[in-house]
Amino acid sequence: MPRAELDKQPADVQRMFDAVARRYDLTNDVLSLGQDRRWRREVFDAVAPQRGDRVLDLAAGTGTSSTPFEEVGALVVPCDFSLGMLRVGKQARPTLPFTAGDATRLPFADDSFDAVTISFGLRNVVDPAAGLAEMRRVTRPGGHLVVCEFSHPTFPPFRTVYLEYLMKALPTIARAVSSAPDAYVYLAESIRAWPDQQGLADQLAAAGWRDVEWRNLSGGIVALHRATA
């Protein structure tokens, strides 16, 4: 399977994620040195769900990020446009209501959710601005958006080391553990090309989100943005 390119043609990105689905969670653990679990916990804490809250978990993949919401009694909907991811997720987590959907054309009514979250998926959306506008549409007034995404390390010497790892070591490690290692070349390139923390905050504001704020995780490798509808 050819890897996706940075123009992010939806069919190419979908095929890429279908191909990596089988060992996706394991690969993420290895490539992030286990940090991805902490980052997802930070997302959960930022949402601070209550029992009965309606939560849309976009780019949910196999549902790893959705499970904690279900465990506290929130009504979580894992949504992804990769059918391969959804199949793997449904086998592992049959109680979750996995839903196929494109972030730029969400299959939900206006004001459907108390919170929307998307972790490590916004940069793979073909039109992030359209995706952010759709997330705003399906969030009730006063509801929240939490975006967890790779960003730009804030300490320049560390940023240099990180980029070396991203572009050289990451694809090499992926070849040892992933079911479709070429996909991780695209993922590394997409991380490098993604806007910095302020750049993403500006995109959120342009899409109509209010009270935009962010904090860095792991020295800015990842940024957690939060906003209000």
Results as ranks from 00 to 15, higher is better:
residue 1 M to V: 09
residue 4 A to E: 01
residue 5 E to V: 00
residue 9 Q to S: 03
residue 9 Q to H: 04
residue 9 Q to V: 13
residue 9 Q to I: 14
residue 19 A to Y: 08
residue 19 A to N: 12
residue 22 R to V: 07
residue 22 R to M: 03
residue 24 Y to Q: 01
residue 24 Y to P: 01
residue 26 L to Q: 09
residue 27 T to M: 13
residue 27 T to V: 11
residue 27 T to C: 12
residue 30 V to M: 05
residue 31 L to Y: 07
residue 31 L to V: 06
residue 32 S to N: 08
residue 34 G to V: 08
residue 36 D to I: 06
residue 36 D to N: 14
residue 38 R to L: 09
residue 38 R to N: 03
residue 39 W to C: 13
residue 40 R to F: 02
residue 42 E to G: 05
residue 45 D to P: 00
residue 46 A to N: 05
residue 47 V to Y: 01
residue 48 A to D: 04
residue 51 R to L: 12
residue 53 D to Y: 00
residue 53 D to F: 03
residue 57 D to T: 04
residue 57 D to S: 05
residue 59 A to H: 12
residue 60 A to D: 07
residue 63 G to E: 13
residue 67 T to R: 15
residue 71 E to N: 08
residue 74 A to D: 00
residue 74 A to Y: 00
residue 75 L to Q: 15
residue 75 L to V: 10
residue 77 V to D: 02
residue 79 C to G: 10
residue 81 F to P: 02
residue 82 S to I: 05
residue 84 G to H: 06
residue 86 L to P: 15
residue 89 G to Y: 08
residue 89 G to D: 03
residue 90 K to Q: 15
residue 97 P to S: 13
residue 99 T to N: 06
residue 100 A to I: 06
residue 101 G to F: 05
residue 101 G to Q: 10
residue 102 D to H: 13
residue 102 D to Y: 11
residue 105 R to Q: 04
residue 105 R to H: 07
residue 108 F to A: 03
residue 110 D to I: 05
residue 112 S to N: 11
residue 113 F to M: 13
residue 124 N to R: 12
residue 125 V to G: 03
residue 132 L to I: 05
residue 134 E to I: 05
residue 135 M to N: 03
residue 140 R to L: 01
residue 141 P to K: 08
residue 144 H to S: 10
residue 145 L to A: 02
residue 146 V to W: 08
residue 150 F to G: 03
residue 153 P to W: 00
residue 153 P to N: 01
residue 154 T to H: 12
residue 154 T to N: 04
residue 156 P to S: 00
residue 160 T to K: 00
residue 161 V to N: 04
residue 162 Y to V: 08
residue 163 L to A: 10
residue 166 L to S: 11
residue 168 K to F: 07
residue 170 L to G: 07
residue 170 L to V: 14
residue 173 I to L: 15
residue 173 I to Q: 11
residue 176 A to F: 07
residue 179 S to H: 06
residue 180 A to N: 14
residue 181 P to K: 00
residue 182 D to E: 12
residue 183 A to G: 14
residue 186 Y to H: 06
residue 187 L to P: 14
residue 191 I to V: 15
residue 193 A to E: 10
residue 196 D to R: 01
residue 197 Q to C: 09
residue 199 G to C: 01
residue 201 A to M: 07
residue 204 L to F: 15
residue 204 L to K: 10
residue 204 L to H: 11
residue 207 A to I: 05
residue 208 G to A: 09
residue 209 W to N: 15
residue 213 E to V: 09
residue 214 W to M: 00
residue 215 R to K: 12
residue 216 N to H: 09
residue 218 S to Q: 02
residue 220 G to K: 12
residue 226 R to N: 05
